[in-house]
Amino acid sequence: MYDSGKIIIGIIIFIALFTFPTWYLFTSGEAAPMPDLVYPENEDQKECVYSAEYMRASHMDLLNEWRDIVVREGKRTFTTTAGKKFEMSMTNTCLGCHSNKAQFCDQCHNYLEVNPYCWDCHVDPSQLENQ
């Protein structure tokens, strides 16, 4: 390998810059504050379409699935394993219980720095009322 010295130095600089956020966090010892979620309070809203563990990890997959079934297959009703029926709608069904989008959806999304583009089109009804 010719120019090995230069290449190795280059790789070291690259790795150093690339991992900067990680080791900066370790040395400064300050983590971003954990999200503090607000859950629905009513008794009849305690049960989600799936378990909380599943929803926490896979709600985005479920939403994508619902999206495709509603838009492309024209079916709108979802039946849970317990036999309860829901309309497959993010704004009506999900936000119907989790009415506080800012304290529920946004908290976690901000913490993880993800920007779901759902809200480019779909409307948060509570936000509309505030306007």
Binding site: T91, N92, Y117, D120, C121, H122, V123, D124, P125
Partner: peptide, 18 residues
């Protein structure tokens, strides 16, 4: 362009478009 600023009264039952 983003159509939202041009919608006078948004109907939350239906999405806007991107």
């Amino acid at each position: 362009q983003d159509p939202r600023p041009f919608i006078d009264n948004i109907n939350s039952e239906f999405p806007t478009r991107s």
